[in-house]
């Protein structure tokens, strides 16, 4: 929602987040190096770097992929989502160290261009067992690079939220490539029950969390049809928490109905920033505040407060006694609508 872009809009939370991230990276590398040197003193520095960074990047990727569904399942994980892009960019940097060292170690100083060598040394693409696993890691690294390079609101605004989001969903393709890269590489070369168990547990955790979050969301996403007069009954006004929202699905779109200051307003549930769920947000300083990154919209017209320019669609809300009705026809984004006033609307005729 930044009007002018800076590399990082630092705040206290981001600094704490990055310090914890840095501490985690240091702890991992230190433990890996010390344990390797102690138990396997013959290890070379190159192998140590390649293995430490590769396994760390994989662990970070699991954490990154777990944060999304965890936040959907429990709001208290949301602060981990807030600055996830720093985690993502750090993961790319560490994965890049792994990738570059591997290419230098295994492919440089030979009779072919190192990048050509990655694809042409082992040509058994027709065999799963003998498959050149390094190519899988290479393509995953390209995806991580694209994501890290565009991991800024400047690119989000210029590429458009839809394209940006679709591109960043490639992380799941990269995850699949990495799992195969590890299985057909180090696991095949140094068979280990522990590695397979860790990798399997990680995969099951990520898949399970996504399925659980999806299942829970699909249960709450029951589509409601309008009545004869074209309105959808949302429920009792008392069922909407103060300064928060309930959501309803109509015409395939999710709508967030907020109660605040004795009024009820409805806006599209989808934040313009990264498609965050506005209905899980709160009214802060008179603005609907997205739980993911704090983007804000005025509830009556769906506009971000000046100087920001994001807009979401608005809807008509009508109260009949205690009952809240929604007109499922959206107004164009940023259109000012009259909020329904609680109590004064008791006798309103629909």
């Amino acid at each position: 929602m930044g009007h002018q872009y800076s590399a990082v809009l630092w705040n206290r939370q981001k600094k704490i987040y990055d310090l914890v991230l840095l501490a985690g990276v240091i702890v991992y590398l230190l433990v890996f190096i010390v344990v390797s040197q102690f138990l396997r003193p013959e290890i070379t520095e190159e192998t140590l770097i390649i293995r430490a960074t590769g396994s760390l990047a994989l662990l970070m990727l699991h954490i990154i992929l777990a944060i999304g569904p965890l936040s959907r399942l429990n709001n208290r994980f949301l602060p981990l989502l807030y600055n996830r892009r720093h985690l993502g960019v750090s993961m790319f940097v560490i994965a890049a160290v792994h990738g570059v060292f591997s290419i230098l170690q295994f492919h440089s100083l030979g009779n072919a261009n190192p990048l050509v060598s990655v694809f042409s040394s082992n040509l058994q693409y027709n065999s799963l067992q003998e498959f050149p696993f390094q190519t899988l890691g290479f393509f995953a690294l390209i995806i991580f690079f694209m994501m890290a390079a565009t991991s800024h609101d400047f690119w989000l605004a210029n590429l458009g939220p839809k394209f940006w989001k679709t591109m960043h969903m490639l992380v799941y393709v990269a995850y699949g490539l990495i799992i195969m890269h590890v299985m057909l590489g180090i696991v095949q070369s140094e068979p280990s029950v522990l590695l397979v168990t860790l990798l399997g547990a990680g995969f099951l955790l990520i898949a399970g969390l996504h399925l659980l979050a999806g299942f829970r969301e699909s249960k709450s996403d029951v589509e409601k049809s309008p009545n004869q007069r074209g309105y959808i009954l949302i429920g009792q006004v008392s069922e909407i928490p103060e300064n928060a929202a309930v959501t309803v699905v109509t015409n395939g779109e999710k709508v967030a109905i907020f109660k605040y200051d004795g009024k009820v307003s409805a806006v599209s549930n989808v934040c313009k920033h990264q498609n965050g769920p506005l209905g899980e947000g709160k009214i802060i300083d008179g603005c609907i505040t997205c739980p993911w990154h704090g983007y804000q919209y005025l509830p009556h017209d769906g506009c971000s407060p000046p100087p920001f320019t994001e807009k979401v669609a608005t809807y008509d809300i009508i109260l009949e006694g205690e009952k809240v009705y929604l007109n499922p026809k959206p107004y164009p984004e940023g259109t000012e609508g009259k909020p329904a006033i609680i109590k004064s609307t008791l006798n309103q005729d629909i």
Partner: peptide, 15 residues
């Protein structure tokens, strides 16, 4: 991270 690093590093085959 400490736990995973311990497991992975300690699990490497001998060189």
């Amino acid at each position: 991270p400490g736990f995973v690093a311990l497991m992975v590093a300690g699990n490497q085959h001998r060189f």
